[in-house]
Design a protein around this nucleic acid. Structure first.
Length: 538
RNA sequence: GCGUCUGUAGUUCAACUGGAUAGAACGACGGACUUCGGAUCCGUAGGUUAGGGGUUCGAUUCCUCUCAGGCGUGCCA
């Protein structure tokens, strides 16, 4: 049998649509007795045909007699339940095993610019940043698997007050803690151990008198730019430890030279007006609550100006689609950025802003407040060191981004069976161990045909083969938890199978091993997309 | 107040974006191979899907109102 697509669902849908000549809704039934797929199409036809759904379903089912993809077609209470044939499943199994970890690889060719993390280089990443980072990276991997040409970009906020504040904080910490000179406490500055550590480093790396009062402003500015570089290195290394790498880094500071160009473009379409000696973006024209200042009366552009230049720059690079992952506290910016994009002459439809909600932490059941200014925050680096990249990746990927997350640190540091990553790896390791016990070679197994399997085993096979659909669904809906849910349920089905079915030495050994191989391949592939390597042994 | 996200089992979360009897994990309780890895499996208990109204063959999902919570509501970044 020729199989046109690795998506079983699509090929089945196509068959039905060709037969019935209408749009078909295909769903996965809740219970496995209802088959692998089902369609409620008879319900929607009931009105126009003025017959009961039951009768219609029976008629339609008869029309599907003899279609080789189906082992059984059953009308039940108006639904048409479809049971796939072994032949159909075998052809997909072969494809899966031949593609290895390219199973479900797509050929979408859209160019996408995915911007995420973009944390200010004024401190190391904390646990809150980790969520956006892991969510973004998982989407990136999903999209790339489907063939999208995606560039991962980090926007560096290396201009403005935050950076000045970093320099001042280092200067203050150095003055007080290193040279031991009194200095009035600044009104606002970054605290935390990392500032003191960094100040020490500055003292030895830059110069001995970097904290001296002579040339104070000059010293602070040196500390700013040096500190920023150091923090960017720190951030990159934090990310690298969980397998995240960016293709592009764009500096806000370097873009500022383009402000006049952007301003000119905005004016061209009437996006700018002057009032009270300030320049305003007429963002209300595109649905914002109020117009926004882009240049203050002292001539200094606002933060929004930076975002405008940046998005201007993005759109000049001409991707098909732009995805931004922002913390939910920035949601107010969506309208104004979209508005600027429209005034620049582009369609804001090409921009999609995804928000990740806050992560709030408990420590032994008590709320744990994080504040970068106060310096009490939980570093991503520390958590990764404690629980490992795999666990933190799985945890964040398994939650929808739009719920605000609350978890206890002590839960995350647990390393017991409640950790799904163990559960899933264990299934994979078991399969690997079965293969080494068997006297059949891998190629013998792959050349065999899966046959004489019972309903439960068929369901397991079907689940393993669903991976391409899951990947597409997860990416299309930007919901990474689909993948983790899938992995868990696949591992669970396999453990169940393993516990009640001997494999090595039974008559149907090759068949069952091939089934296991398909499962292992899907687990391995899905984990790889999550930035996790499947274990053969634990 | 306005904008926005959320509200599902004791807890943390799912539910194929409108489909059949709302599912997992943790926790609790009770069980299972002298045999391929017991980090596993099987079972039990636990629900007015925050609440009311609406749309339709059908609603956790869509609309609307109410209630509760997070975030935002700088010419900070």
């Amino acid at each position: 049998m020729k199989c046109q697509s690795s998506l079983m669902k699509n090929s089945i849908k196509q068959i039905l649509e060709d037969r019935f000549n209408r749009e078909i809704v295909l769903e996965r039934p809740r219970s496995k007795e209802f088959g692998h797929f089902a369609t409620p199409v008879a319900f929607s036809m009931a009105k126009e045909l003025r017959k009961s759904p039951m009768v219609i379903a029976e008629d339609l089912a008869k029309e599907l007699d003899g279609v080789p993809q189906f082992a059984k077609v059953e009308p039940v209470k108006g639904y048409i339940n479809l049971h796939l044939s072994e032949e159909f499943l075998n052809s997909h199994a072969d494809e899966a095993l031949l593609s290895e970890d390219n199973f479900g690889r797509g050929d979408k060719n859209e160019r996408v610019l995915l911007e995420f993390v973009s944390a200010n280089p004024t401190g190391p990443l904390h646990i809150g940043h980790a969520r956006g980072a892991i969510y973004g990276d998982t989407l990136l991997r999903l999209g790339r698997h489907l063939g999208y040409k995606i560039d991962a970009e980090y926007y560096i906020n290396d201009a403005g007050r935050q950076i000045d504040l970093l320099g001042l904080s280092l200067y203050y910490a150095g003055s007080v803690h290193i040279v031991g000179r009194y200095m009035a406490e600044p009104e606002e500055y970054y605290r935390g151990d990392y500032i003191i550590d960094l100040a020490k480093e500055a003292h030895s790396e830059l110069s001995d008198d970097i904290f001296s009062e002579k040339d104070r402003e000059d010293n602070i500015s040196k500390l700013s730019s040096w500190g920023k570089e150091m923090m960017m290195e720190e951030i990159k290394s934090n990310l690298f430890k969980v397998g995240i790498e960016f293709d592009l880094f764009v500096s806000e500071k370097s873009l500022y030279t383009k402000w006049n160009d952007s301003l000119k473009e905005l004016k061209k379409l009437g996006g700018i007006f002057e009032q009270d000696d300030k320049l305003w973006l007429k963002s209300t024209e595109h649905g914002d609550e109020k117009d926004r200042v882009v240049v203050r009366e002292n001539g200094v552009p606002t933060y929004l100006a930076g975002d405008i230049i940046y998005h201007h720059n993005k759109f000049e690079r001409d991707y098909d689609k732009y995805i931004n992952i922002w913390g939910a506290d920035h949601h107010g910016y969506i309208k104004r950025v979209e508005s600027a994009i429209e005034f620049l002459g582009y369609s804001s439809q090409r921009l999609e802003v995804l928000l990740t909600q806050m992560v709030s932490l408990l420590k032994n059941g008590q709320p744990y407040k994080m504040s970068k200014r106060a310096g009490n925050f939980i570093l991503m680096r520390d958590v990764v060191e404690e629980v490992g990249s795999d666990a933190i990746r799985f945890t964040f990927a398994s939650k929808r981004p739009d719920i605000s997350l609350e978890f206890d640190l002590s839960d995350l540091t647990k390393e017991d069976s409640s950790n799904p990553i163990y559960y899933i790896n264990y299934a994979h390791a078991r399969i690997h161990s079965l293969l080494s016990k068997s006297s059949f070679s891998q190629s013998e197994i792959m050349q065999s045909r899966i046959a004489d399997i019972d309903l439960e085993q068929k369901e397991l096979l079907f689940n393993a083969l669903r991976l391409p659909e899951v990947i597409e669904e997860a990416f299309n809906h930007r919901e990474t938890q689909k993948l983790t849910e899938y992995l868990h349920s696949l591992a669970s089905s396999y453990h169940s199978f393993y516990n009640n079915t001997p494999v090595v030495g039974v008559e149907n050994e090759k068949s069952l091993l091939k089934l296991s191989l398909v499962v292992a391949n899907s687990i391995k592939t899905a984990l790889k997309i999550m930035g996790i390597e499947a274990k053969n042994r634990m």
